[in-house]
């Protein structure tokens, strides 16, 4: 009697169930980040990896195509993570962008940002080609995932890529963020990360805010604001150019 009643409440309030469920995942990820990785890997990266893992479990159980959202009780995840709320929340992050501070980053920061968008995109596209992808939409989406894990799905959704390709682009971006977090303290000396200017260049080139702030925090706490300054522009720039200029270039090269 109690079981079906709980199930009914959860299903009838699907979006609220999703908020509670994702909140639990975020809390668990923060705990894993703090106790198992000593804060080395950012909680948000762990949460997204958990999300992908749960999508795998959901898909394996139901045989459906929408991950966890195919489980009736968790159908609200589909609405919460759907295109409407996703674009809404991502646009909202632009509100924090401080235009005056952007001027401080100057020409070097801008150049690093442009390279940081184009280089990983080219690498991502090349990797996708070598794995047999040939259509412009999939290539662009996977290339965009190599920019950041936000730019990938935003681009994929805008271009109408398949869910499997979008999943690949998210996973690529998350894995990149984790590599940056772990690799930065190890490679800091080699790349010359000991001054504010190099931190700004680093932030612009690496992009992923969670990766950059996590990596710089482990290298030298004082460098974090400089790296984050340029990195915060990365997602916006990527969302602007990946589904437009970069897609058109890829389409012109490989055909639709």
């Amino acid at each position: 009697m109690i079981g079906p009643m709980i199930a009914h409440v959860l299903q009838a309030n699907a979006l609220l169930t999703a908020f509670a469920f994702v909140g639990l995942v975020m809390w668990l990820s923060a705990a894993i980040s703090k106790y198992l990785t000593i804060g080395r890997i950012h909680g948000s990266a762990i949460a997204i990896m958990l999300g992908l893992a749960l999508a795998f479990v959901g898909g394996a159980i139901t045989g459906g195509k929408s991950g966890l959202a195919d489980i009736p009780m968790l159908s609200g995840i589909g609405l919460m993570g759907g295109g409407m709320l996703r674009d809404f929340a991502i646009v909202a992050t632009a509100f924090e962008v401080d235009v005056d501070k952007a001027r401080n980053a100057g020409l070097v920061g801008a150049l690093a940002l442009c390279l940081g968008t184009v280089l990983p995109f080219m690498v991502g596209v090349a990797a996708a080609i070598s794995f047999g992808y040939r259509d412009a939409v999939s290539l662009t989406t996977i290339g965009a995932g190599a920019i950041t894990y936000i730019v990938g799905p935003v681009t994929g959704a805008a271009l109408g890529a398949s869910s499997a390709v979008i999943a690949l682009s998210i996973a690529t971006g998350v894995f990149k963020a984790v590599l940056v977090m772990i690799g930065t303290p190890l490679l800091a000396r080699f790349v010359g990360l000991d001054n504010p200017r190099s931190a700004m260049v680093f932030g612009g080139l690496m992009g992923t805010v969670s990766g950059v702030s996590g990596g710089l925090a482990a290298t030298d706490r004082r460098l974090v604001p400089y790296g984050a300054l340029t990195a915060t522009f990365h997602t916006g720039l990527g969302c602007l150019v990946a589904p437009s200029i970069l897609y058109l270039i890829v389409r012109a090269l490989v055909g639709a």
Partner: peptide, 8 residues
């Protein structure tokens, strides 16, 4: 974004 990842 976590919810989105869980949908893929």
């Amino acid at each position: 974004v976590v919810a989105m990842a869980a949908n893929q």
